[in-house]
């Protein structure tokens, strides 16, 4: 291919959670601009594998920007330079021949590195388990149209619910705060009438677990909003703050 890219990659290699990692240099040649970023890494990995070397471990699954598995920082930017895009949907036409790309894992104490670019994000699951749901026992639901929901609320809830739980917000935040993630879920659920019943308990419990997991504090820098591949707005963080204040002021047991 004539218009293939030649790139220098500096990739974080780390054997496991307890060992130290470091950046290692690699070169890839003749990368098609139509490749996705992960396909570029596939190319590198296949080359490594055929030489009997261990390929770079990275998480990926759907490769269409929705599962939230992929998680790498490219030149300091979670999911790479393109806004509103997961790294699996980032295409190599975004880069130029001769570029150097530094590829690192998410870095947060609450997301320990398991290997190379793979981090453990189960802290997010524990936050959801703490309250990120509406209790609706299977079988107990009334008719779907029993409760009208203003279109605007449904749309705002959907905006927030679009979160894919990838953790880019944490990776981007200078404080490794998970507020955007938590805010997205709290907003999604508290905007809907069904979610209001448990709203107070939900927000207090989720924030409590968020703190316990070791995420940092939000200082309103907005980096999360900029890097969120689903462009979730910090308006949701404001809503989370509001919900938390309401709940804290009214709670009888704190």
């Amino acid at each position: 291919m004539t218009n293939g890219l030649n790139l220098k990659l500096k990739i974080w290699r780390q054997k496991n959670q307890s060992s130290d990692g470091q950046l290692k240099d690699y070169h890839v040649k003749d990368i098609s601009p139509d490749m996705s970023f992960l396909e570029m890494l596939d190319t590198l990995n296949e080359e490594l594998e055929s030489n009997g070397e261990e390929p770079v471990a990275f998480e990926h699954d759907c490769r269409e920007g929705i599962c939230g598995s992929c998680s790498m920082v490219v030149n300091g930017k979670p999911h790479g330079p393109e806004r509103g895009t997961t790294v699996c949907q980032l295409h190599m036409r975004r880069f130029s021949d001769g570029d150097t790309l530094v590829i690192e894992p998410w870095r947060a104490k609450a997301f320990p590195i398991i290997k190379d670019l793979v981090v453990e994000r189960s802290a997010f699951d524990r936050i959801i388990a703490a309250g990120g749901f509406i209790t609706a026992r299977t079988g107990s639901a009334p008719d779907g149209n029993a409760v009208q929901i203003p279109k605007e609320h449904a749309e705002l809830a959907m905006d927030a619910a679009a979160c894919i739980g990838c953790g880019a917000c944490v990776a981007a935040c200078k404080n490794a705060s998970a507020m955007l993630f938590v805010a997205a879920k709290v907003s999604h659920l508290s905007l809907l009438p069904q979610g209001k019943v448990e709203a107070r308990k939900r927000v207090l419990d989720m924030v409590k677990v968020m703190d316990q997991e070791g995420f940092g504090n939000c200082t309103n820098t907005q980096a999360c909003e900029v890097e969120c591949p689903k462009e979730i707005k910090i308006e949701n963080i404001a809503r989370l703050n509001r919900e938390w204040i309401k709940a804290s002021a009214a709670a009888r047991d704190v």
Binding site: V73, G214, N217, T219
Partner: peptide
């Protein structure tokens, strides 16, 4: 201090990700 601890290892390649100087 909490925030520095929450980050743990620093990024090798830093980029401010849209946050302005004042906020950082």
């Amino acid at each position: 201090i909490q925030n520095r601890t929450a980050r743990g290892t620093k990024y090798m390649h830093k980029d401010a990700s849209g946050a302005n100087f004042a906020s950082r």
